[in-house]
């Protein structure tokens, strides 16, 4: 057999690489240029600024507060969604009457844009005329109305809950794909050997689902870290910036305050954070995979 030139793989990758470069690298270069420049309110460059924009971000106490909140937000939603989605996927994987309908119901929120969901929640969370308060009062769980969005102590947890709800359908889909990839005969063999349902779950389902768990963690982290609509539609990061995460803070910097240089610097910082997380996570899980093998 004739060996093909070692260049061929690279050539085959090239079109895809060029497309990715156009979509990802070109904006990155643009962002980098703006971040290193003095920029006016309208994004027109006015000279070289060095690292002044980055320094301004790092000195801003709002940045650290928003960063910390972003961590809580991301970890809360990603793991909340994992915990909720795994059992849901296990149930939906069973063969039962009406499974098709059940799957549709679980997937349905996915069909609605997150912004719409968030706006509906904003109405539901209204303190005086919202559905949530009136529902809780009808059930007798509440005596006086709670102003859910008036302070961060109630607003932020509720926002995380909404985030979990909208993340579940996607996560369930990944898990269902994973579950259907596990061969049935493994379970049959386990049953023959006398394994209990829990043992089958612990020794077969869970380890074989690990790669799918990892995909769900990485993809959801990327989505949630950058997720803007839920917080913006409900509180715009307020009151007093107490529900700001990095993306909402970025939006304010760029489009309300007109500090496009600082906003570009911040988005580069966010990009670097996500990239670092993803590389680290993939590295860790890959190594663990080798150990298991």
């Amino acid at each position: 057999m004739r060996r093909s030139s070692p260049l061929v793989p690279y050539l085959l990758v090239l079109p895809g690489f060029l497309l990715a470069a156009f979509i990802i690298l070109w904006p990155l270069v643009q962002l980098g240029t703006i971040a290193l420049s003095e920029v006016n309110r309208f994004g027109q460059l006015r000279g070289f600024a060095g690292l002044a924009n980055f320094a301004a971000i790092l000195e801003d106490p709002e940045f650290l507060a928003a960063l910390w909140r972003t961590v809580i937000w991301t970890v809360g939603i990603v793991f909340g969604a994992l915990l909720l989605s795994f059992p849901v996927a296990l149930v939906l994987h069973q063969d039962f009457y009406g499974r098709g309908l059940a799957r549709v119901i679980v997937m349905l929120p996915w069909a609605i844009s997150i912004t719409m969901t968030a706006i509906v929640w904003r109405w539901a969370l209204n303190g005086e005329s919202g559905l949530l308060n009136s529902g809780l009062r009808t059930l007798g769980l509440l005596d006086t109305n709670i102003q859910w969005l008036a302070q961060a102590t109630t607003a932020f947890p509720v926002q995380i809950l909404i985030g979990i709800l909208v993340t579940v359908p996607f996560t369930v889909t990944i898990f269902l794909g994973g579950l259907s990839s596990i061969p049935e005969d493994l379970y049959e063999a386990a049953t023959l050997e006398g394994a209990s349902a829990f043992q089958a779950f612990r020794e077969i389902t869970f380890p074989l689902m690990l790669p799918f768990l990892n995909i769900a963690v990485v993809l959801n982290t990327i989505y949630v870290f950058n997720s803007f609509p839920i917080i913006w539609a409900t509180t715009q990061g307020g009151p007093a910036n107490s529900t700001d995460i990095l993306v909402t803070y970025l939006y304010k910097l760029g489009f309300a305050y007109g500090k496009l240089g600082e906003a570009s610097a911040l988005s580069l910082i966010m990009f670097a954070l996500l990239l670092m997380f993803t590389l680290l996570y993939v590295r860790l899980t890959a190594r663990r995979g080798e150990d298991v093998a």
């Binding site: 209204n126 005086e128 005329s129 109305n145 102003q147 859910w148 969005l149 008036a150 302070q151 009151p239």
Partner: peptide, 21 residues
């Protein structure tokens, strides 16, 4: 005032006014 003022935009307050509250 209405409770939880930091949850009320101008439109929210206008709605309360229209409801006669």
């Amino acid at each position: 005032t209405q409770p939880g003022v930091t949850a009320y935009t101008r439109e929210d307050v206008q709605n309360l006014f229209k409801q006669g509250r």
